[in-house]
Amino acid sequence: MLNDSLNKKNIEFDPAVLDDIEKLSYGLRNIYMKHGFERFKMSKFEEYDLYVRNKDFLVSDSVITFTDTTGRLMALKPDVTLSIIKNSRDNPDSLQKICYNENVYRISQSTGSFKEILQAGLECFGNVDNKVTGEVLGLAADSLALTGREYVIETAQLDILASFAEEISSEPAVKDALLKCVSEKNLHGIDNICTSNDLPLEKASDLKELAGLYGPPGEVFPKLEMLCRGKGIDSCIADFRESLSSFKKGEHSSHVIIDFSAVSDLKYYNGIIFSGFVQGVPGSVLSGGCYDKLMKRMGRKSKAIGFAVYLDMLERL
């Protein structure tokens, strides 16, 4: 009906009336839908309980809450992924592809007050194999290429990183501290953690070498394979290699690097994780990865992968 009415009044889509972020947002949606992703529109509100149960998954602890007319404690969405999982079908044998453009409400690091942030992104649930992972990584690269700037996708394999940290210590606090150092490329910090926890420094040498690996897949994989030899994680490397195989050639091939500083929370993420950078923007503008562990925590059997593009970060381009 609305569409008919607009057509009658000769109101057609005119890109000139959109601002840059609206154009980018439209462009991203266009790319995702052409790849078979269905648009998912969600409510601005969600029951607060969902976020309490998965507090560590959120970027910040603070959430805007209010009591609705039925007395339920509600929240303005600080995150999109949790809501999409909650409302998705759990069918591990099929593949569900969803994309979104949504506002989230988070604390701004600079002002310390709440900010409305526009995110675009996609999620895949169900039978997520290496081919699907490769497709998602490709779409992440397509998303960054749309900015017209030089871009880089950095990627890592979290299970490999976790097994290297586990070799040093099985103590969760020590492992967290080690992974924080890896995320900062802080190799001297890894030594300091070993010293202060009476762990032999030799134990840290492999993790330091892994944290120091940096470069295109073709250069890094031979070194990574050498480093992982005998550690019983050959299947992780094989999956990692296969997921990145589509980048051997093509327009994105020179934009993908392996960098194990792309760390995410081990409680929720597993397998491949990645971040995107665009020249001229000081921080990452895209982040994503596999989150089968989060699905399991939410009682789902399906595998999952997705990413979000932080459109607010691109405003200043």
Binding site: V152, F277, Q279, P282, G283
Partner: peptide, 11 residues
């Protein structure tokens, strides 16, 4: 210290 994005483009 280094900016995370600069590290990628000025490696």
């Amino acid at each position: 210290i280094a900016n995370k994005s600069s590290f990628k483009f000025k490696t």
